[in-house]
Computed example of a mutant assay.
Amino acid sequence: MRILIIEDELKMASYLKKGLTEASFTVDIAEDGSNGLFLALHEEFDLIVLDVMLPGIDGFELLRRLRKEKETPVLLLTARDTVADKVEGLELGADDYLAKPFAYAEFLARIRSLLRRAPRAVKDVLRIGELEVDLIKRRVRRGDVRIELTAQEFSLLQLLAERQGEVLTRTFITSQIWDINFDSDTNVVDAAVKRLRAKIDNSFETKLLHTVRGMGYVLEDRS
């Protein structure tokens, strides 16, 4: 997933980019409001991290102009943490507000929360490498091979395919597929992934469903 950081403090921007990149996000940086607005309007991002105190166009004005054309989720980052500033930012269309200084763990949690809530473009057919998932006919093919899945296996594959390239935690998967929260030590997700992997990966040279140790699972073509 692609994130734009609009932040004139280069040390802060580099720190956030490093952390988000390690969390498997693709990150672009704009160092002032003008360049940030241009990128936000002309490129496609899943989320924008926006500082309020920017040279040129400030964050509030940038947000005002952005909301005339796009609904990209925006997380405001700023040292201006008065109630009036928060209200102004939210009324202009910000999706969340985080005051500096902040803990990186909270920042990342807010990023992930916003991305989970963001509407996603719906496609009839999802493709990852040679794997094809038809959401309308609920059919799966890998190359010329038709793959038969149970309803639960299809739902799991759809979730992974819709978020291809994004590492999904076991907790998130259980909340989406089973609509409940299992204990963290349960193997229900691992068992479901193992069954799905046996059908979509084991008979093929290129593997698409990967385990990210200590984090979860990701569906992506790494060839």
Rank of each mutant, 00 (worst) to 15 (best):
Thr26Met: 11
Phe38Val: 01
Pro119Glu: 11
Arg222Tyr: 05
Arg170Ala: 11
Phe204Lys: 12
Gly129Cys: 07
Arg116Met: 03
Val133Cys: 01
Ile177Glu: 05
Arg142Phe: 13
Ile48Trp: 02
Ser175Asn: 10
Leu39Asp: 05
Ser155Leu: 10
Leu47Thr: 05
Gly165Thr: 03
Ile128Trp: 10
Leu62Arg: 04
Leu126Phe: 12
Val125Leu: 10
Arg80Asp: 01
Glu132Gln: 11
Leu159Glu: 03
Leu159Asn: 04
Leu126Arg: 04
Asn187Ile: 02
Arg120Pro: 14
Asp81Trp: 09
Arg127Asp: 01
Thr206Arg: 15
Asp58Met: 09
Met1Arg: 13
Val52Gln: 09
Ala118Asn: 08
Arg80Met: 12
Ile180His: 13
Met12Cys: 04
Glu88Ser: 06
Arg195Gln: 05
Leu160Met: 09
His42Arg: 15
Ala198Cys: 02
Arg213Ala: 13
Glu44Leu: 02
Ile128Leu: 06
Arg2Ile: 00
Ile136Arg: 15
Glu9Pro: 10
Lys86Gly: 07
Leu76Ala: 14
Lys194Asn: 13
Ile173Leu: 11
Glu71Cys: 03
Leu16Asn: 01
Phe154His: 07
Leu219Phe: 08
Gln164Ala: 05
Val83Asn: 10
Ala198Met: 11
Ile111Pro: 02
Val122Ala: 14
Ala118Pro: 12
Ala103Gln: 12
Glu166Asp: 08
Leu209Arg: 07
Arg142Lys: 15
Lys207Glu: 13
